[in-house]
Design a protein around this nucleic acid. Structure first.
Lengths: 225, 225
DNA sequence: CAGTTACGCTACGACTCGTAGCGTAAGGGT
DNA sequence: ACCCTTACGCTACGAGTCGTAGCGTAACTG
């Protein structure tokens, strides 16, 4: 995207970049995705509409970048001394981010567009998904250092598990917030962390899975997961 | 929605209703959400554009109804004899549904619109969310009958747990499919069910969280991948 | 200073939206 | 049968958006 080329000519205005992304977020707050127009963003940013099109091919790509910047600013992994506490806090922070109108309205819209736009899908993957997956990897590292989780022997299985955890956490919070339209509050985060750490039986009010009333179901052969 | 009124005059054509919803789904497959136009749907359905607007105020409401019909057709709870198997199968069925282009592209788009449209949010809640939550309630009933889950004493807590499970399952599948853009296949469903039933420790290795021991060959330092 | 690239501005055709107005089709009440 | 009411198809329309082209000017490089 930024080949070493372009050493000559007038450089692009970094000021304009910031103004445009800021204007995009402001417009998302007021108008939402569907009523946001390129012309409006340009006017807010004090820039010509053509300048937008020189940098982004369409509305979707512009909004992806605006949202990615927001995520990077806001999401950090807490270190509260236990896996459970870190999960709860991360869930709450992510939920707080989704409270922002510009995040709510655009995240889903961009994903929707991406369902029939391969280039946009790739941009989301690199700009948002991969960037946030590091939180899971880091959290696992810390939990392992604390002895809360075993260290995996199979790196491929470990990567699969990390992806799974990422989708479960991010997916649950997004679904609760945007689809079910319910609040992600402290009690919910606590229940959710409990479910993640101990599974169904615990979430239903108990400790270990084997105490659920009958012997735990047959396990898979070693080496899986 | 259908007040006892309107007993006089020409009745609305049920044929037109079906044609319109069918045309909407077909258009979603070919064009996706953003390029779908009311005029195009009308043409496909063989009706006048004004007929669409007499029934739905805008594109979002039309698509919500088209998708809700699709969900009702497709989602049933399997009964395979164990909670684990039922969860896996439900995950796979839901994923198969999300493979359909008309479902992928419109579910997210409609949710995005709903973030700044209270009426649409309500329509989604009653038309989609509440309808599918029954799957969770039914699944729990069966698991309790089999002795796989304890019966809750507190109905309020039980309801909270059911909502939680619903968001976790639906959210994880949607996120995996549409955001991470990875396949929800049998191995993933198996890992996911394992996580839901037994929690982190099981997904990362085995047994109860307290047994997290296991000799740990020092793995890569932080920040890999 | 010459070459190159970015910027602001204006204008434009193509398209979609959602509505209004009209004449016609299809039922119900008496 | 007759009117009344409502739905339908059709056409036309103003408003708004999209994305691009063309122009003159600004900024930076060697």
């Amino acid at each position: 995207m930024s080949p070493p080329a372009r050493r000559t000519g007038r450089p692009r205005s970094a000021e304009a970049d910031r103004a445009i992304l800021g204007a995009t977020r402001a417009a998302l707050v007021e108008l939402g995705w569907s009523k946001l127009t390129m012309g409006d963003v340009a006017a807010r940013a004090g820039v010509a509409k053509t300048t937008l099109y020189r940098r982004w091919a369409n509305k979707s790509e512009l909004v992806v970048d605006a949202v990615a910047a927001l995520l990077d600013e806001q999401l950090e992994l807490p270190d509260l001394g236990s896996l459970r506490a870190d999960v709860e806090e991360t869930v709450l922070r992510f939920a707080a981010l989704l409270e922002r109108p510009e995040a709510r309205t655009s995240l889903m819209a961009v994903v929707a567009e991406a369902t029939h736009d391969e280039a946009l899908r790739e941009r989301i993957r690199t700009t948002i998904v991969d960037r946030q997956k590091r939180l899971v990897l880091l959290g696992r590292e810390r939990a392992q250092a604390r002895g809360e989780l075993p260290r995996e022997t199979d790196p491929a299985a470990a990567a699969r598990t990390a992806d799974l955890i990422f989708d479960v956490i991010a997916g649950a919070v997004v679904h609760r917030t945007l689809v079910s339209a319910d609040a992600v509050d402290a009690p919910w985060a606590r229940d959710f962390a409990e479910l993640l750490l101990s599974g169904f039986a615990a979430a239903a009010g108990r400790g270990c899975p084997t105490s659920a009333g009958r012997p735990a179901p047959a396990q898979k052969p070693a080496g899986s997961v």
